[in-house]
Simulated scan of single mutants.
Amino acid sequence: MLFNLIAVVLAALSTFVVGFIWYNPKVFGTIWMQESGMTEEKAKKGNMLKIFGLTFIYSLLIAFVVPSIVIHQVGVLQAAGGNMEDEAYKAFMMVHGEMFRSFKHGALHGLICGITFVLPIIAINGLFEQKSWKYMLVTGGYWVVSLTIMGAIICGWK
Rank of each mutant, 00 (worst) to 15 (best):
K50V: 04
K50N: 12
K50H: 15
I51F: 04
I51S: 03
F52V: 01
F52G: 03
F56P: 02
F56N: 02
Y58D: 06
Y58F: 15
Y58V: 13
S59Y: 13
S59V: 07
S59K: 05
L61H: 05
L61Q: 09
I62C: 14
A63N: 01
A63W: 04
F64M: 11
F64Q: 02
F64W: 10
V65N: 06
V65Y: 11
V65P: 00
V66T: 11
V66K: 03
P67H: 07
S68I: 12
V70W: 06
V70A: 02
V70M: 09
V70T: 03
I71Q: 04
Q73P: 00
Q73W: 06
V74I: 12
G75L: 05
V76R: 11
Q78L: 15
Q78R: 07
Q78F: 13
A79P: 04
A80R: 05
A80N: 05
A80E: 02
G81A: 09
G81Y: 04
G81E: 02
G81R: 01
G81L: 06
G82F: 09
N83S: 05
N83H: 04
M84E: 14
E85A: 13
D86A: 11
D86N: 12
D86S: 05
D86M: 11
E87W: 13
E87S: 15
E87D: 09
A88K: 15
A91N: 08
F92S: 13
M93S: 09
V95A: 14
V95S: 09
V95G: 04
M99L: 13
M99K: 15
M99T: 14
F100T: 13
R101A: 05
R101V: 01
S102T: 08
S102F: 00
F103R: 05
K104N: 09
H105L: 11
H105N: 15
A107V: 11
A107D: 01
H109E: 09
H109W: 15
G110D: 01
L111M: 06
L111E: 00
I112E: 05
I112Q: 00
C113H: 13
C113E: 11
I115V: 15
I115K: 00
F117T: 06
F117Q: 08
P120C: 08
I121V: 13
I122H: 01
I122D: 05
A123C: 14
I124C: 08
N125Y: 14
N125I: 10
G126W: 07
G126S: 04
L127S: 10
L127W: 13
F128C: 07
E129W: 10
Q130M: 10
Q130L: 13
K131F: 00
M136L: 00
M136W: 03
L137I: 06
V138M: 01
T139F: 11
G140R: 04
Y142H: 08
V144A: 02
V145P: 00
